[in-house]
Structure formats: structure tokens, C-alpha cells
Design a protein around this nucleic acid. Structure first.
Lengths: 215, 215
DNA sequence: CTCCAGCAGTACCGTACGGTACGGTTCGTA
DNA sequence: TACGAACCGTACCGTACGGTACTGCTGGAG
């Protein structure tokens, strides 16, 4: 069934049928709208116009579906990985600000919040399988982009740090602070919706004060 | 029933019977051990040697029990609120480091993690009642301590900031970074168990670089 | 001693969900 | 046309949980 599959599969990348992608899309929508309780197998089947039997054939069981949802969402959010070869102080700052804004946008996204809530709720029992998956697929990705940027800054003599991980931790903390937790706890981001720019800029300025070499 | 209650109540503060305190204690233990799924009304009743009927009489319904658990735990963790009147650079740094270590200890605590997971899991539906409660009872408390400390530092001419909230956000971010989220997602804190001191110190040093006036 | 409030223990009910089984239908292939 | 695989829709089953009702037992007040 694999040989002829070229007709039925959406792309060789992930081994997902279009049908299955639709299912995962609808499942994510249900999760975003109503939380984990709303994510029932019957509900997903109804929303995606498929049968529960197919669900179990494709994803094994409910946990398999959850894992597939995380992997699916991660595969959609591909962070552009640009590490420019020519850097001056201004362009480094601009790149850092862009990164910080992207980080805030991603973390405040509906689907990201819903998946994080799901994984956190599941973390107590079962060895936190979903938590590891989310960490691996999500944070690693965005962490690599920041790492490359920081490394480029150091190569250009614009940044000074010994431990890249520590520097990245400082940048992340200055940008995010406790925003992520507050959003996860249900605080409406309402008013602060577009403080993203201002917040990103002051965080980056603080970061450059700590790790910049100009002066 | 209130007049004679002095015999039966544990303290006039919270209006909780000893019996009810035992129930909440056992409920917290169940939550820490097995997550929200393990926190069933029957399980709590069995663990606390009381009847389900009493549970519902005392707490209304399951959500009432959850709220009571959060309030109960918050009432136990009373943060010492010291804002010394005499401050020099060294003692300010020591106070900040102590605060940072306490913050890390609290956030990494079993019960804190379990309650945060519970509130986050509940945050999707129902207007995030538990999230607000946790925010109000937990963060407000520790935020006030930090606020007093920062204000004292400014009064003594050791710190310079215009927006206290922003300064506190920077301190929090530098200290915590993404540790809290990683712990919530189930990452074992295993090896990093006692990096608390080192981490607190470097975070405070960075904070003082940003907001200190010495130099 | 009597009475009564409070509570443990348990049985019970309705519901909702995860997972399975089955009939009917579509569609590609020979 | 005939066959078979995939699959939708639905019915079904076992279980587990939230919430309620009932039966005693105990201990203190009069």
C-alpha cells in the first residue's frame, strides 16, 4: 500500500494522509476551544467526519492522538533559521528584537497555549511523555535559532559570554518573565496585546547591557 | 453552631475544622502523588476517613474542594515580610539572593507544582477561576515581598528604576527563566537540585548590573 | 436515660467516556 | 461486472466518576 500511496499521501515528509491531517487539525481546534475535556474521541470523529474506528486504526489510542497532535503542530511551525554573516550592533539588535517578538507571538498563540496546558496536565502521571515531546519539538527549535544568533554575535565581537546556554536563559527570562505562566493560568492577554514590540525592545536592550561589548 | 465552635475549630482565622484541614491535607497528598485524575471524591473520602456526604456538605462540590485546597495551601506558606531599614550594597544583594533562592524553592516544591498543574489544566474552561485564585494568593504574596525590597533599595539610593513592576519582572525572569515551565512539563529537576544558590547569585548580579547605582 | 445532631460507610443513580464490533457504502482494480 | 479494501456511521460494552440517599453509630446536652 506504500507504493501507490503517492496519490493518497499529502507529502512524503511525515507519513500523514490528508485525511489524518484534517483529523489532527480538527482535534487541535477542539482542544483550543474547549480544553482537554472537550477533546473526546467521539467529538474528534464527529468534527472530522470520520469514524472512531479509523481514529484508533491511525493513532492507536487517545495518547497516540495527543502525541500526533503535538508533532503535527510542531511540524507546521517551522522557525526560519537565519544567521546572517555580516553583523553590526544595529542589525544584531534588530535580529534579537525580531526573535523576541516571534517568541512572544508563539508563546501567546492559541494552539501553543492549549498544547502546553494539555502536556502540563498530563505531566503528573505517565512519565510526562507529552511534556518531553513538546520540549523537544518546540523549545529545541526556537532555542537553536537563538543559539545561532548569539554565536554569530559573539563571532562578530558584539557579544561576550562564556556559557551560551546561560546567555540564552537570560534573554528568555528578560523577554518572557512570568508572562507565559500567567497566560497558561488563564489570564486574558487583552490589553497587553501589542506591547510585544515595546517589551521585546526593552528586554533586548537589557540583554545587550548585560552581554554586549559596545562601550 | 458558631458560638460553641471554639472547641471544634482549629483556629478562628480560616473557619476550618480540624477535620476539614485533615481532608485538605490528604487531598493535597493525593494530588501531588497522582495528579488530578487521582483526586477523586471517593479517594479523598477514603484517604481522610470521612464520608463523601461530608465532603459535599463542607465544600459544596468538587470545584469547591479544589478552591479550598489552593486557599489552604496558600495560608500555610506565609512569606516572611522583612524590609530592613538599613541597607548597604552588600546587604541588599544578600536579601535579593535570599529572595531568589526562596522563589526557586517555592516554585520547585511538590505541592506548588501540583497546584499549578491543576489550575493550568482547568484554565481552558470555566473562566480560569482557580488560575486567578492561585495568582492572587500565591504570586501577589511573593510579589509584595520583592516590591518592598526593591522599594527599600531605591529609597537607599542603591537601585534606580522608574517602573517597579518592570524591575520586578526583570528580576523574576533572570531568576526563573524557563525553569518553572520545564518543571511543570515534568522535567526531573534531579541534577540541578542545588544549583539554586549559584543560579540565584548570578541572576541577582545580573539584576544589579541592570538596576544598581554603584559605579 | 433519652434525644438528637453529625458523621462514617455504603449502596445507588445518571452520565460520559474510551475502546470495540458490525452493517452499509464508496471507490479503485481486475 | 465482480471483488475487496478502506472507511463512515452507529450501536454497543465496561468502567469510572460526580453527586445523592439511606442506614446505622457515637457522643454530647438536657
Amino acid at each position: 500500500m506504500r507504493g501507490i500511496g503517492a496519490i493518497k499521501e499529502t507529502g512524503g515528509e511525515s507519513g500523514l494522509t490528508e485525511r489524518q491531517a484534517v483529523v489532527l487539525e480538527q482535534a487541535l481546534r477542539l482542544l483550543v476551544d474547549g480544553g482537554e475535556k472537550a477533546l473526546t474521541t467521539a467529538g474528534v470523529a464527529r468534527a472530522a467526519n470520520c469514524s472512531k474506528e479509523s481514529l484508533y486504526k491511525w493513532f492507536g489510542d487517545r495518547d497516540g492522538l495527543l502525541s500526533a497532535m503535538i508533532a503535527f503542530q510542531a511540524s507546521k511551525v517551522r522557525t526560519l533559521e537565519v544567521s546572517p554573516e555580516t553583523l553590526d550592533a544595529a542589525s544584531l539588535r534588530a535580529h534579537l528584537v525580531a526573535f523576541a517578538k516571534d517568541l512572544l507571538e508563539v508563546l501567546a498563540g492559541d494552539v501553543s497555549l492549549a498544547l502546553n496546558r494539555l502536556a502540563i496536565g498530563q505531566a503528573s502521571r505517565e512519565g510526562s511523555k507529552l511534556g518531553h515531546l513538546l520540549q523537544e519539538r518546540g523549545r529545541r527549535q526556537i532555542g537553536r535559532r537563538a543559539g545561532a544568533l548569539l554565536e554569530a554575535g559573539r563571532k562578530a565581537g558584539l557579544l561576550a559570554f562564556t556559557d551560551a546556554e546561560e546567555a540564552y536563559g537570560a534573554l528568555y527570562g528578560l523577554v518572557v518573565s512570568d508572562w507565559h505562566l500567567r497566560l497558561l493560568l488563564g489570564e486574558a492577554l487583552g490589553d497587553m496585546k501589542k506591547d510585544f514590540s515595546r517589551r521585546a525592545e526593552s528586554a533586548v536592550d537589557a540583554f545587550l547591557t548585560l552581554y554586549g561589548t559596545k562601550g
